[in-house]
């Protein structure tokens, strides 16, 4: 379990990360979202020890994290980077050995990952000669090369086409297994689809954190009602609800005192209803409300 405990980072007078605390639980994909400049990358760099915090600490299984433990994390920085003129298998082996793997084991693992990414026959090619998509795959392989015990990935999906996003998501789910995985993303629909937990950062502070389902639950219960015919304007007269929108036969309402079954009974009693469905709040709404 990875605990981020009261991390702060100041540059001069400005506080880029301000008392940030959250937990990345094993076996749960944790999404890290926030506007540009919210402090996501700075937080991730502090977790990896690339940047030292002004105050606060990172804990692993309840204890302050050590350098040796950090070496067993997998990290994909926001600014991608590998050696452009080095053969891809060679650089994976090099990185694995830096993480403490023996040469033979490192070589085996490098080829295993390259095969997994269908890059087995490119092992001897220098990075520069690969397409951007393939370079991204090598970058992910670099983060996974030493069978990390936790993964911290900064924008792992940026620059990928939808098919590649799905492949990457499947791979991450498999590789993460029961390990803690934290990844940042701008693509809220993606985060919504993949994540179990969510941390929303705004101007250096955590404004919402927790299970995605719980965060959605914090909003009002919203229902969409569609009548078979006619205008739904009369719904405004019902009590115990707040109407968000009326458009011809369709109405969008929040429960405000009544229950879903009472509302359904009231609507059905006035005529045929073709749709009565709960509207789950999209993450984008949670996000917008959280950072407001």
């Amino acid at each position: 379990m990875l605990d981020i405990s009261h991390l702060s980072r100041a540059y001069g007078d400005s506080l880029v990360v301000d008392d940030v605390s959250f937990t990345v639980k094993p076996g749960r994909m944790t999404g890290f979202v926030g506007a540009n400049g919210a402090g996501k990358t700075t937080t991730m760099r502090m977790i990896l020890g690339v940047l030292s915090p002004t105050s606060g600490e990172v804990r692993w299984d309840g204890l302050p994290i050590s350098t040796a433990q950090r070496r067993r994390f997998g990290y994909m920085p926001e600014e991608r980077g590998l050696y452009p003129r080095m053969k891809i298998a060679d650089q994976l082996v090099f990185l694995a050995r830096l993480h403490g793997l023996e040469k033979a084991e490192a070589t085996r693992r490098a080829h295993e990952l390259l095969d997994h990414f269908d890059l087995g026959d490119r092992a001897g090619d220098v990075l520069d000669t690969l397409s951007l998509g393939n370079q991204q795959r090598v970058q992910i392989a670099a983060a996974l090369i030493h069978r990390p015990e936790a993964l911290v990935l900064d924008e792992p999906f940026s620059g990928l086409d939808p098919v590649a996003v799905d492949a990457m998501a499947a791979l991450l789910a498999k590789e993460a297994g029961d390990k803690p995985l934290l990844f940042s993303s701008h693509q809220l629909d993606l985060v919504e689809r993949l994540c179990d937990d969510l941390v929303i950062l705004s101007q250096g502070r955590v404004v919402a954190a927790g299970a995605v389902d719980d965060l959605r639950g914090t909003g009002p219960d919203r229902f969409r009602i569609r009548l078979e015919t006619g205008d739904a304007a009369w719904i405004r007269d019902l009590r115990g609800i707040r109407v968000r929108d009326i458009d011809g036969p369709t109405a969008l309402v929040d429960l405000d005192g009544t229950t879903a079954s009472d509302l359904l009974a009231a609507v059905v009693s006035r005529g045929p209803v073709v749709e009565f469905s709960p509207v789950r709040q999209p993450l984008s709404t949670i996000f917008r409300e959280a950072i407001r």
């Binding site: 760099r45 990896l48 020890g49 690339v50 350098t67 950090r70 070496r71 994390f73 990290y75 920085p77 600014e79 991608r80 980077g81 590998l82 050696y83 452009p84 990185l95 830096l98 993480h99 670099a142 983060a143």
Partner: peptide, 17 residues
């Protein structure tokens, strides 16, 4: 400077002191 320019330094710094 090659490691800085290619940004691989970020990965290296996370791997070793």
């Amino acid at each position: 400077v090659q490691e800085k320019e290619s940004r691989v330094v970020e990965i290296l710094a996370a791997a070793v002191p």
